Computed example of a mutant assay.
Amino acid sequence: MSRTTVLDREVGQALSALSATAKRGLGDPALAELVVIRASQLNHCAFCLDMHLGLARRHGVSQRQLDLLAAWEEAGDGVFDERERAALALTEAVTVVTDGFVPDEVYATAAKHFDEPRLAHLIALIVAINNWNRVMVARRIPPGGYTP
């Protein structure tokens, strides 16, 4: 079965605007890339992984962090700091809503590390990448084709 590669221009623009606004509001491009990469790992989105791994490197994310991101909980404190861990835990909770909600303790930990506006932008960023992942995975868009 062939799948469409078409994405409505207005839909693409809306998703791009949400992503850009959330990243700007978060104010930490390296952390934003860790978040979108982790969600993309969970969603098996090769296109987004390919794109955001390159962007992460450009924003100074270390190769060690990229190599250990899939196992961030086990990587130890020397790899991801508390703020990054809180953002990654929230990313996983929002991306994989297994109990129908984000656990209070995960939200509370994130709220300790992000003021309300940044927390709102972090949540928006997680929602945005999950939207992109689903749009790309549903159509099975392969990696490549992205140029910054």
Rank of each mutant, 00 (worst) to 15 (best):
M51T: 10
N43D: 14
C48L: 09
A39W: 10
L66W: 08
E33D: 10
P29C: 01
L31Q: 00
S40Y: 01
R38C: 10
Q65V: 10
R38I: 10
M51I: 00
V36Y: 02
L42F: 13
C48V: 06
L66S: 09
C45N: 07
P29H: 03
L66E: 08
R64L: 15
A56Y: 00
V35L: 08
A30K: 02
L49A: 00
Q63L: 15
A39S: 15
A32E: 04
S62C: 05
R57V: 03
A56I: 01
P29A: 07
L34P: 04
L53A: 10
Q41K: 05
N43F: 13
Q65F: 06
R38G: 02
S62G: 07
L49C: 05
V36Q: 07
L66Y: 07
A32W: 11
Q65R: 11
L34N: 04
L53R: 09
A46W: 09
L42A: 13
L34C: 01
L42K: 10
G54F: 02
Q65M: 06
I37V: 12
L42Q: 13
L66V: 13
G54L: 04
R38S: 10
N43Y: 13
G60C: 08
F47A: 08
I37Y: 04
C48A: 11
F47E: 09
L31M: 00
R58H: 10
H44G: 13
F47V: 03
L66T: 06
G60D: 09
L42S: 13
V35I: 13
R64D: 15
G54Q: 13
R57W: 01
R64K: 15
Q41E: 12
Q41L: 11
D50M: 01
S40A: 08
Q65K: 14
V35T: 09
R57G: 00
V36P: 01
G60V: 11
H52L: 07
Q63E: 15
R38L: 14
P29L: 04
